[in-house]
Design a protein around this nucleic acid. Structure first.
Lengths: 145, 145
DNA sequence: GCGTAATTGAAAATAATTTTCATTTATAGT
DNA sequence: ACTATAAATGAAAATTATTTTCAATTACGC
């Protein structure tokens, strides 16, 4: 299910948000990349096609889009905030290439057996998990560093 | 295997670092907590017993201790840097209580089956993973929020 | 088209982290 | 114990990241 502009617009409006050209530009910048972008990187890219935009707007837009589940955050690599289009709408995780930054999604993480074991062993009531893999994507494996 | 002062000292010296009273104080502050602490929190605690210490020293010490594998970082909860004594020396992960912050370690994450599946499906050569569980520890489950 | 609530950008404020540098200190070698 | 020296420290300034404030502007339901 491709995320059309109409769909995005209706998701935003359903929550009382407006689809401004700035927000559209931010979404397009994120959607145009297969790797993850920091707020500053998004700012730079959006500015090319929308020179007047302020960095504040980037931050505000990223917060809203994250709340609405339209974009995801990536953590691998030590940086704190880096964003990516949310592709599968279901629960999923990321494989992040440490060389080129390309992100591949996968579903069915299937941690329930592990969660049950942990509940049993530790008494923890597990509510969520943070899981990300890092490594080299297929096209980065052949090139020597 | 308990991490004695002698052991810490020798680990530091082996890499050409010195065991200063400041570093000892930072280690003690981290070791004294079962939950994770941010650099600012560590600064506040260390300052009580060592008033002259600078925040810079905290940052520098945390970097060194992380490099040497004496402390771990925790990511759950959205904050970026929060530290914890490294307890099992082996590969392990954390269960973080979202209520009181207590961190429980576990080993044998056993993601190899998943990693193999991902390699097969995506061509990724998986090199590492970031895994953390969040939830409620046993003693925080009984109290209503 | 109009009214209004939402959004924007600039600037200032705050927070987090790093760099620089002169001074101090831990420790290996004597 | 004493000394030389490389490493470490703290203060201040610099940098980077993020949030708040506010007056002006704009999207969109009516």
């Amino acid at each position: 299910m491709k995320l059309t502009e109409k769909k995005v617009s209706s998701i935003l409006r359903r929550q009382g948000y407006k689809l401004t050209p700035q927000r559209r530009a931010v979404l397009n910048a994120i959607a145009a990349n297969k790797d993850h972008l920091t707020p500053a990187e998004i700012f730079d890219r959006v500015r090319r096609e929308y020179p007047g935009i302020g960095l504040v707007t980037i931050y505000r837009t990223l917060d809203i889009l994250t709340d609405l589940g339209l974009i995801c955050e990536v953590h691998s690599g030590g940086h704190c905030r880096s964003y990516l289009m949310r592709r599968p709408q279901e629960h999923h995780h990321h494989l992040v290439c440490s060389d080129c930054g390309t992100v591949t999604d996968f579903t069915n993480c299937d941690l329930s057996a592990l969660e049950q074991r942990l509940s049993r062993e530790t008494g923890f009531h597990v509510e969520g998990h943070l899981l990300e893999f890092s490594g080299r994507c297929q096209s980065c494996q052949t090139i020597t560093p």
